[in-house]
Design a protein around this nucleic acid. Structure first.
Lengths: 241, 241, 241, 241
DNA sequence: CATGAATGAGGATTCATTCAT
DNA sequence: AATGAATGAATCCTCATTCAT
């Protein structure tokens, strides 16, 4: 499957003809990637349905049949966007040291990582925003299974938090839906040229969703906030309008 | 390719004034409503783009030109769905005694009412879920203005809460996006035949978003929670899985 | 068949019930006429094809089925416009004392009368401008026969003029086509609010087409112009830009 | 109802590059031309409105989408017909040594050239006959400007003739309308298989319109006819019925 | 007489996809 | 590895015409 990392280094197709296959192989992957990048961009901007293969070809300055050389059909392009997005998200989630700390901390880390994935990567945003109803039943199930994995992870952490006392008792399913919804929705309003960095958004969202809006009821006797940093975070983000 | 029309022919009879013996009768508004109901349903199920006028006609058991007797074009149907949805939401929000209490209370009431609107009414869900990029620039602006009104109301309450001390200092814009996102997203996963009632969802969401996930840090000395009921709410919803 | 003259005198439908039939009859004719008037107007303004029965109904403030009460179908309306136009033209041509004078005089009178008919009456303009290709073969032949009658009359006068020496020897068919063309074309550019009266146009056209553009080669010795008035006519029309 | 497609399947083979064995070959311009030829033909025969893209495709034996490969939409085809027609006319008018001689001679040359353009070329006839009301406002203005250029040229020559004494004083505007009308109308009755050659028609028309119908009032003393050839022309054309 | 409601047939246009080269 | 050309199927929409009342 197409490599995630961009390998758009200019190839020298002529030298070393015995390396032809590899070069060609890398070239192919690079072009596939280019197609996917552009496709993701257009899908997000105009919707999958309203993006025609002609649009895509025009943007890439290649002809339609060339697209069909790289992909069997439009749906495959969409699926691949999903797959790359899900891989990116999973990668980020794994890197986020989700594995230690109590349940609440894991949820926090998770939300933060997920937010970054959605804000930073077009493919991530595809997962969050594109309607998988466009897919054929067979592929849809596949994509949904992958999505569910992410959902279930959050839900698991919430439940863990409830058990270990770091999370207030609640409906874990609803809670994870709320978290996912808030994050997925980011794609709707986020603009790369906006005022907030992805990190700021991620942190603020993590705060909001784990601590809620309301002011700590009794900061009087107990300054034992579980993270001084977070309060700072709030304040910091708040400054920026 | 996924066929647009799955034969979900089981119909709510109230949606079919054509079925009755009063066909070719003068109940224009009733029929317009029926068209809108069905349209909203199909738009939500399959997307605006993938719902053809033929699909709509087939569901209603009328011919395409008959649809055009009631509406000028497909877009007008969509716009009307939006309008009805926005009216429903605004109605609910007005009824929710949003006007009294501190900022946090208002946000709570708002979230609860908005959630109900989205969960209970197809039209409400249309507002939350349908992509207004389908609309012509002129109408899009109109719809967006209406949506913004809702957004701005939430943001206003958040800011009010920050001023009156009931809401922790935060980026009000981001906070209202988070709230709106979580609620709007409901349309993605909600099924009318699910386990939770709209009210339960609304209450749980209101809790989650205002209080956050984490357990109150110091419930020891101060039972002066601003709402004992909410804790109960949490517990209640939690019971249902 | 519908009366040509407008009898839109307000009817009193209630008094004298035994006259009901006649009243109703007159009423019907009046309405038929109204439909035809409006239809002719719209056909000329937007073309037959681009004028829908709805347009026509809207203008008349009656419903479509009402139109079908007065006429069997759209084509019949067009045919009736033609018929009225042809009748009007024939009427004018008859009135123009075409029957006396030499051939050239008859042509002159004819052109003048025809021009007036086309300029003054919408129905006349319909004959000149509307494409009878819209008609069904059967009706088309009928209409064309009527048109041909007019054409043949001009041609006849031209030939008569050639015989009696008042018209230079020429291809009578081509000549009559030229005359007819120039006159028919008037509908293309004529605006009722223009600077020239129908009479001026008619006279100038009659001059142009019978005498040609070129200045009389030898007006020196022979003032025996067959009409001193015409020279005046030229000058008069020329004044008005 | 008159069927749009009469099976006049006898085709000019030059109009069908699809017929040959070079199908799916790179001769874009040839095919565009073929489309335009056929379109002009159908537009003239049945009217723009009544010629559907299907009709056009059927005649050319290609599918509708293939048409859209060559042209953006139906209007573009019409516009292109106009443009070609106007270019053809302007070309002929330029070639006609319009630039020398007195005003009357110029008018004569002009009428003759214009007549040939209209009689000989389908595209020319399109300019004369097709209703530019079908065009979008933007394009209509463009086409009308081009048409007006032609009109104004005639009018200019008439005025020149009035000044230099070769044309009798008259309303130049009306006169040019008459000329244009007579010529444009040719498209209505001209059949390529008719008895008269385009040249004969052109010459006769030029005579008629410049010299009028009436016999020279006093050829006795003044044989100084400005063109002996013309009289011959008259006689020649007259022979043919 | 007149109307509100409905329909069948078509019309322009777009799109994903394929063929032959 | 890529292209110019072409297509079948659909989509939105319009129109002349007709019921049933």
């Amino acid at each position: 499957m197409a490599k995630t990392t961009e390998s758009n280094e200019a190839e020298n197709p002529s030298r070393e003809p015995w390396k032809g296959f590899l070069v060609r192989q890398r070239n192919l992957d690079a072009k596939r990637d280019a197609v996917l990048q552009t496709a993701a961009h257009l899908f997000l901007e105009n919707g999958y349905r309203r993006t025609s293969m002609s649009d895509l070809g025009r943007r890439l300055k290649i002809t339609k049949p060339a697209l069909y050389y790289y992909f069997h059909n439009k749906e495959e392009i969409l699926v691949e966007c999903y797959r790359l997005g899900i891989m990116a998200i999973e990668g980020l989630l794994d890197k986020a040291a989700v594995s230690h700390g109590n349940g609440l901390n894991k949820v926090r880390a998770y939300v933060e990582a997920y937010t970054k994935a959605v804000v930073r990567f077009d493919f991530g945003r595809c997962v969050a925003m594109l309607d998988d109803a466009e897919l054929s039943p067979r592929t849809r199930r596949e994509v949904r299974d992958l999505k569910r994995k992410i959902d279930m992870a959050i839900r698991g952490y919430v439940e863990e938090g409830i058990r270990d006392g770091s999370v207030a008792p609640c409906n874990a399913k609803l809670a994870s839906f709320a978290l996912a919804g808030a994050v997925n929705w980011i794609g709707t309003w986020y603009r790369p040229d906006g005022e907030l960095t992805p990190e700021e958004i991620a942190e603020e969202f993590a705060n909001l969703l784990t601590q809620g809006l309301r002011k700590d009821p009794a900061p009087t006797t107990l300054p034992a906030n579980d993270s001084g940093a977070k309060t700072t975070g709030r304040a910091r983000a708040a400054k920026r309008r």
